[in-house]
């Protein structure tokens, strides 16, 4: 309520000041809101992107961390901002696919945002400790079937990608009553979730490749499968196609830019051009690929379609398996 008011008044101010100047769209710095804390995967991705962007764009970008409630606080702040293109959101799979699909009490919906472009795709990998007895995804599934209610998996929180990812994978292998048969251990971030696997608190983790990459490279963890179409460098594990579960390709992380629903066409168009140029930057590419991500720019239309289809497939599963948070 208060934020609405604040954001509204800021928007009015912005509009009032922007109106008399007939110049082209960015006439003042643009604020990019990161709905997660500094140092997280989204934050690092945004900061890496902003470096080439600031060279291309006529106005500076101000990166703003607005963390809280699994990305909801920052997302709401952008939803309530004016659609003049001076406030944009770093949207991510957690805040804009998994959480909306799992949490009916979320204070925003996907329709309240207009996507400018998705620029990063992050396949999901299921990983276990190298000391673990599980050498393939089948070992894991067999273990869950043999010892129901004893296998633990960690995630970066309720309604996060690793929370949903593990359930989606298990479901595709025909495991029912997920609530009873596997145990979810939420933690406060991907780092903690992986630490839990490393120290044996949790048996496996199905989340983005980027936080898991150092542990795979270091030989402390073993990947069981990846959800990309092709095999990934450094991840010596079969793809979902090879396993025969192509439907799991829908399970990927992504990062993109979005504005409020009434974002102007002019801003959307310009951002498309800027993003296209920024993602070609070598340093940016190097940073993203070193973390196991795939740099892939989508047009606004493709982005919306991509997000909606991911949402639809997640939502179907949530309803079918009764996974809603309430």
């Amino acid at each position: 309520m208060k934020t609405t008011l604040i954001a509204l008044s800021m928007g009015v101010a912005a509009a009032a000041l922007a109106a008399p100047v007939a110049a082209e769209y960015p006439t003042r710095p643009i604020q990019m809101i990161i709905p997660f804390g500094p140092g997280g995967a989204t934050d690092l991705s945004a900061r890496a992107l902003s470096t080439p962007l600031s060279r291309i764009m006529p106005q500076p970008i101000v990166l703003t961390n607005r963390a809280g409630a699994g990305g909801a606080t920052g997302s709401v702040a952008v939803r309530d901002a004016a659609g003049d293109g001076y406030t944009l959101l770093l949207a991510r799979v957690g805040s804009h696919t998994v959480n909306p699909a799992m949490n009916p009490n979320l204070p925003y919906t996907l329709d309240e945002f207009r996507f400018v472009g998705i620029y990063e795709i992050n396949p999901v990998a299921c990983v276990v400790n190298s000391n673990s007895d599980f050498h393939s995804i089948d070992d894991l599934i067999n273990a869950v079937n043999e010892r129901p209610g004893e296998i633990l998996y960690s995630s970066s929180g309720v309604g996060s990608l690793p929370h949903f990812g593990a359930l989606m994978v298990l479901d595709s292998f025909g495991i029912t009553d997920l609530d009873e048969n596997v145990i979810h251990i939420p933690t406060e971030g991907d780092g903690q979730a992986l630490t839990a696997v490393l120290q044996g608190t949790s048996d496996f983790y199905c989340g983005s490749t980027s936080p898991a990459a150092p542990f795979i490279n270091g030989g402390q963890m073993r990947p069981l499968m990846v959800t990309s179409a092709e095999r990934l460098d450094g991840f010596d594990a079969p793809t979902v196609d090879e396993i025969g579960k192509p439907e799991l390709q829908a399970l990927v992380g992504w990062t993109g830019l979005a504005g409020p629903a009434d974002l102007t066409d002019e801003a959307t168009e310009k951002w498309g051009d800027w993003l296209a140029e920024a993602v070609e930057d070598e340093d940016f590419q190097r940073f993203m690929t070193s973390g196991g991500s795939i740099v892939q720019l989508m047009s606004p239309e493709e982005s919306v379609e991509f997000v909606n289809s991911a949402y639809e497939s997640f939502r179907r599963l949530v309803v079918a398996l009764d996974l809603e948070i309430d």
């Binding site: 008044s9 800021m10 101010a13 009032a16 000041l17 604020q31 101000v62 703003t64």
Partner: peptide, 16 residues
């Protein structure tokens, strides 16, 4: 805060 730390300090509606 705005120039060095890159924090958008609220400007208000009157004088920016």
């Amino acid at each position: 805060f705005t120039k060095v730390a890159g924090v958008a300090i609220p400007q208000g509606q009157i004088v920016r």
